[in-house]
Write a protein that binds this DNA or RNA. Sequence first.
DNA 1: GGCCACATGTAATATGTTACATGATTGT
DNA 2: ACAATCATGTAACATATTACATGTGGCC
Lengths: 195, 195
Amino acid sequence: MSNLSPTARVILGFLHLGEETGYDIKQVTDRSTRYFWGASYGQIYPELRRLEETGLVRSRDEPRGGVRRRVYELTEAGERTFDEWLREDGPDRFELRDEGLLRLFFADQLEPDGLLALIRRRRAWFERSLAEFRELEEHFGGLGDTTYGAVLDYAIDWMEWNARWFAALERRISRGETPRSRPSQPGGTAAPPPR
Amino acid sequence: MSNLSPTARVILGFLHLGEETGYDIKQVTDRSTRYFWGASYGQIYPELRRLEETGLVRSRDEPRGGVRRRVYELTEAGERTFDEWLREDGPDRFELRDEGLLRLFFADQLEPDGLLALIRRRRAWFERSLAEFRELEEHFGGLGDTTYGAVLDYAIDWMEWNARWFAALERRISRGETPRSRPSQPGGTAAPPPR
DNA sequence: GGCCACATGTAATATGTTACATGATTGT
DNA sequence: ACAATCATGTAACATATTACATGTGGCC
């Protein structure tokens, strides 16, 4: 029963991967897990000290020149706890806060043009997101056959799927059709299989 | 510039749709917006009073027998504010907290069987979710050509897509293949962890 | 009598972001 | 000289969940 806070997991994970300081962890989360599990300084630094009290990490001062710098690493207990969490069969937290979806949910009072604008903005947002993830992929140069690479694949596929879904809805609305096309799939096309 | 808190939007939306009491709003969010925008009593009741102070809603006591009951409705200012929010061109909050994805991200240290178990659980979770949404659809008997019906369609399609994506990943791993099927970068077998 | 649904509310707790304060080093 | 980056940290605020307290009315 690992009683880790969600942020603690991110921290243990990145210490495991070799990150050293709280600053490092923040930098790397901002380019990776941010999209499904963020962390701010206000969480990271206090959590690092809690983890040290619990004995899951240890630290030492390792200044770079005059820059104060505290380097952390996992203890054996930390490695074990992290590994246990990875294998645990508990329910995974899954939470979404999506204001665009909320708007669409309540959008029946909008005239077609208003609705169309809303959908168009959403599709555009997903397309920008997609471009962002593709840049990330390019920046990291492939990431090899790693599971974090697979997560990036997932993000890219997901954004593509979203862009397509809302493009299909957009077409329907702009043709003067109603927002639902059931029982057939949007645009008549089934969701694309993962590559 | 509507300065509504997210929960306030949900409340205005459901009052607009005809819900009356804080209790009603909680019931209906639990069967609908919960998946992308939840609300608990601890938010709803205080928020209703704040909205009344701001003049966006008005209320009266309307007991049912001896059961105390406070009925709310939108004022004109409330309707206007809500409509403005629907049309606003601001950025929409989009936040995801997905522990399963976090696990997959860090799963490189697992042996194939451990990884497979993780993926299988995730696929199963999406399949249960899908069934849940389908039940919802059945329960509501179609929902007609409404935008909230379209949101339910979206949820169903999305869960289907997820189940399929992870089923594909599962197949790859169970065949002894690597987690990624993308054309990988030339020269690179094992890329170093992100630094 | 006991349980469930209706109905309102608060307190404690958890979780998290933002803004700010501090200071060294590196590059322009 | 100044901006950016490295690096640590805290305080204030925002947001939200959970658990609890309270009570009516209907049903078996």
